[in-house]
Computed example of a mutant assay.
Amino acid sequence: MSIYRYLLHIAYIGKPFRGAQRQVKGTFPRADDPLTVQGRLEMALKRLKPSNEPIVNMSSRTDSGVHAINGTCHVDLLRKNETVYEPRSITLCLNRYFKKQEVPIRIIKTHIVPQTFHSRHNAISRTYLYRMVIAKADSMNVAPNLHYIPIEEWDRCLFFCTNTFDLDRMKEAAKLLEGYHDFRTFMGKNSGSDEKCTRKVMDYIKVKTVDKTGYSNVYSWPSFIHNDVDDYLFVDVYLKSKSFLYRQNSLDLTI
């Protein structure tokens, strides 16, 4: 019997999902779980008609509403004729299914990996991204153009108004969180939090300003919407660690 393990690089918009990890419990054959990323991946893999039950192992258990630029997962598949599934065929088949079902998940690439590989245990780091657009004004009335944010950034960035934002102080504060610390106060409420290890090593926190042209193209922010780019500050915040706590971060990129 020839069973193969496949590593999938995946991207998704997390808003319609309750999270990445499967939530519908049960014995084999397992019921479909269309409201989680793992559940949707398993539903798509059934389209390949494997002889075994496809069980997806996620590298990161992102929370509800969290997006992924490049996450990973692995799955074992046994083909009925015991031949290998071509990785490219898996990518195309799953993406075709997601497109037809209007599910915001995409397979970036598929690889065959050894049976000893585990997408979660072998992950060396996880990087999260916060994106902010800051209008340099006291209120929305002074900065009405904030109502015309690009559609591709809608509900995916933090937008707010202030004329007292201090980027240098934010960078200084971020440095204080690097290294080994107890991040208990930064996590969401969890019934098991008292028993969990809340001490983590934060490899780095990088705060970067982004040029408007690098954030959106000229068609997204046309000149007739606003005349002065200095009215807005575009900031990306990157956090890298081997692992994070429950509801500690917002967007997943695992390598």
Rank of each mutant, 00 (worst) to 15 (best):
residue 167 L to E: 07
residue 245 L to R: 08
residue 123 A to R: 04
residue 210 V to P: 00
residue 134 I to D: 00
residue 137 A to S: 12
residue 57 N to R: 11
residue 44 A to H: 06
residue 255 I to C: 06
residue 113 V to Y: 04
residue 125 S to I: 07
residue 15 K to Q: 08
residue 155 D to E: 12
residue 11 A to Y: 02
residue 251 L to A: 04
residue 71 G to P: 01
residue 208 K to V: 02
residue 200 K to P: 00
residue 201 V to R: 00
residue 79 R to Q: 12
residue 68 A to V: 03
residue 133 V to G: 14
residue 158 L to W: 09
residue 113 V to P: 03
residue 150 P to R: 13
residue 169 R to S: 07
residue 61 R to C: 14
residue 234 F to W: 05
residue 254 T to F: 03
residue 121 H to T: 07
residue 104 P to T: 05
residue 23 Q to C: 06
residue 78 L to S: 10
residue 81 N to Q: 08
residue 196 K to S: 13
residue 228 D to Q: 13
residue 255 I to G: 04
residue 11 A to V: 06
residue 253 L to T: 13
residue 36 T to F: 04
residue 76 D to H: 11
residue 36 T to D: 02
residue 85 Y to R: 02
residue 253 L to G: 04
residue 206 K to H: 11
residue 87 P to A: 13
residue 8 L to Y: 03
residue 162 T to E: 12
residue 7 L to H: 01
residue 105 I to V: 10
residue 241 S to T: 10
residue 75 V to T: 00
residue 82 E to V: 09
residue 6 Y to D: 02
residue 78 L to Y: 03
residue 8 L to I: 14
residue 127 T to Q: 13
residue 11 A to D: 06
residue 4 Y to M: 06
residue 53 E to Y: 15
residue 169 R to Q: 11
residue 105 I to H: 01
residue 27 T to C: 02
residue 238 Y to I: 08
residue 64 S to R: 09
